[in-house]
Amino acid sequence: MIHEILAVGQLQCNCSVLGDEVSREAIVVDPGADIPVILKVLERHQLTVKQIVVTHAHIDHIAGALELKRLTGAPILYNQLDLPLVAMMSVQAGWLGVATPEVAEPDDSPTDGDVVSVDGLAAKVILTPGHTEGSLCLYLPEEKLLIAGDTLFAGSVGRTDLPGGNTRQLLDSIRDRLLPLPDATRVIPGHGQSTTIGWERKSNPFLQDL
């Protein structure tokens, strides 16, 4: 599998480009900004985007999704429980002091247990509400890989003080849906460095009481 992680935008959101080496089909996760940079990576690997997945509808993760869709024709997937955040995109832009991006409703609303796939590559959707109501992760068991959005970080967890956040729900999501994954599972958070499930279970101070 081809996997490139690009830190995009003002908040350095981790955008993942996942591609199959044979079919050259790709999934792009969280294209929050810097679409020309993402396109260059796709071109370098000769990848065609077939799915655009947004882990949650905060501006730094979703802002470039519609532009990428228009350029590639790929559908946008995110959970519809985050539509209230989409409706307040101008407010989100105000938090960062940036122009309001054009965003759209999802072409499909994946939920827990669904599979997002392209030819040669499949990711299971794990719904992890808490950071936002519709937050989701993508789990690729064959690759021992979890793309966690802003649910779980290296040594930390997602913030819950923004609209739609719920601390108890977030911790329950991590305990019930992420910590049961194999220890060796590599975790790509929405920002910052990667980690593993085993390391976070053992050392993350926010998870020790779980």
Rank of each mutant, 00 (worst) to 15 (best):
A33T: 01
A33N: 11
A33S: 15
P36T: 04
P36E: 08
P36S: 11
V37G: 09
V37M: 10
V37C: 13
I38P: 06
L39R: 15
L39C: 11
L39P: 11
K40W: 11
V41K: 07
L42P: 12
E43S: 11
R44E: 13
H45W: 14
H45M: 09
Q46C: 10
L47H: 10
V49E: 07
K50I: 07
T55A: 15
H56I: 03
A57T: 13
H58Q: 12
H58R: 10
H58I: 11
I59P: 02
D60N: 10
D60C: 07
H61Q: 14
H61E: 09
I62T: 12
A63T: 09
G64L: 03
G64Y: 03
A65K: 03
L66I: 03
L66T: 01
L66H: 08
E67L: 06
E67C: 10
K69V: 04
K69M: 11
K69Q: 15
R70T: 09
R70V: 02
T72S: 07
G73N: 08
A74M: 14
P75A: 04
P75Q: 02
I76C: 10
I76S: 02
I76P: 04
L77G: 02
L77N: 02
N79M: 04
N79Q: 07
N79G: 03
Q80A: 15
L81D: 14
L81Y: 08
L81R: 13
L81C: 02
L85N: 06
V86L: 14
V86S: 07
A87W: 11
A87S: 14
M88Y: 06
M89E: 04
A93S: 04
A93G: 06
G94E: 06
W95S: 05
W95A: 08
W95P: 10
W95M: 05
W95R: 09
L96K: 05
L96W: 05
A99Q: 15
A99T: 13
A99N: 15
T100W: 05
P101E: 05
V103H: 01
A104D: 13
P106Y: 00
P106K: 00
D107A: 02
D108H: 12
D108V: 11
S109R: 02
S109T: 05
P110L: 01
D112Q: 09
D112G: 13
G113W: 03
G113A: 00
G113K: 04
D114F: 01
D114L: 05
D114N: 06
V116K: 01
V116F: 03
V118C: 14
V118Y: 05
D119P: 13
G120V: 01
L121Q: 08
L121G: 10
A122Q: 05
A122R: 07
A123Y: 00
K124S: 11
V125N: 08
I126T: 02
L127C: 05
T128N: 09
T128S: 07
T128Q: 09
P129D: 05
H131N: 13
H131W: 09
T132E: 03
T132K: 06
T132A: 00
T132R: 00
E133Q: 15
S135N: 13
C137T: 07
L138H: 00
Y139M: 01
P141M: 00
P141E: 03
P141C: 03
E142D: 14
L146S: 02
